[in-house]
């Protein structure tokens, strides 16, 4: 009993300690942003690795998720003779929830883990220490560009995921199942609102997710124990923690935007 409480206390302190360090890390990161304005090239390079390289998995996943939504939505709506609402179902599911959330989860698996591993390896191989000894601040040169590129890339990836998903739903519904094309789009347009659904859903949600996903990824790399085991642990933590935080935040954001 006592031991269990003690263990709980230790775990709690450990997590608060990490949260504190992560917050300090974020503050230093934000402090280094000003220096980045002079070096946009650094961000472009990172946009390539977190954005362009994530495109295939995002596009493929978006397509399949959209097609599944089309099939499932049709199967359920056809009983009510409401298949003309299929466009609405597909679009609202993707725009409000699945687009930003799944894109963030895929991003954590594809780009977040890579960021953590890369930064962790730079730590192991003393590249970060070498940089500091060269009077170059790794926050400005390494962490900030990766963080900013990730925060920019996330909404773009979520938008691409959502758009391709809707096209996938369209393909299944209209081309395969014979839903009327006009009804598909017009019902969708009548139900999906630009600010309330598209902006709050895709843009705001994915911007928030991009922020936490990249914060976690870069911090875990920076905080990794500099051994191969430490990096593998940190990479796992990036994916697991990002998934948990994204899903929890999604609940909060959904309650704010779409609840009540």
């Amino acid at each position: 009993m006592i031991e269990g409480l003690q263990r709980l206390g230790r775990a709690t302190l450990f997590w608060f300690n990490r949260l504190g360090r992560a917050t300090l890390f974020l503050l230093r990161l934000l402090g280094a942003l000003a220096a980045l304005g002079k070096r946009p090239g650094l961000i472009v390079k990172q946009l390539y690795s977190v954005g362009v390289l994530s495109l295939p998995i995002i596009a493929m996943s978006g397509l399949f998720v959209g097609m599944v939504l089309g099939l499932q939505g049709y199967a359920n709506l056809v009983d009510f003779g409401a298949t003309s609402s299929l466009g609405t179902v597909v679009a609202l599911s993707l725009v409000r929830e699945l687009g930003p959330v799944l894109a963030a989860l895929l991003y954590a698996a594809r780009a977040g883990s890579a960021l953590t591993a890369e930064i962790g390896l730079m730590k192991v191989t003393e590249q970060l220490a070498a940089m500091q000894m060269m009077a170059v601040d790794p926050f400005a040169r390494v962490f900030a560009p990766r963080f900013v590129a990730g925060v920019i890339a996330m909404p773009l990836l979520a938008g691409i995921f959502t758009a391709i998903g809707i096209l996938g739903g369209y393909f299944v519904a209209v081309q395969q199942l014979g839903v009327d094309s006009g009804a598909f789009w017009s019902q969708m347009q009548a139900a999906v609102r630009l600010v309330d659904d598209v902006v709050n859903g895709v843009v705001v949600k994915s911007a928030v997710f991009g922020w936490v996903a990249n914060w976690i990824a870069v911090f875990e790399g920076y905080d990794a124990i500099p051994t191969s085991e430490g990096i593998s642990l940190a990479t796992t933590r990036t994916v697991v923690n990002t998934a948990l935080v994204v899903l929890a935040l999604d609940f909060v954001l959904t309650a704010i935007f779409f609840g009540a």
Binding site: A91, L157, G159, I160, A163, A190, V192, D197, V202, V203
Partner: peptide, 15 residues
């Protein structure tokens, strides 16, 4: 591509 996706979401998907 990202901006085009948003353009589509704005013009075609929502009103």
């Amino acid at each position: 591509l990202g901006l085009a996706a948003f353009f589509m979401l704005a013009m075609k998907v929502s009103n």
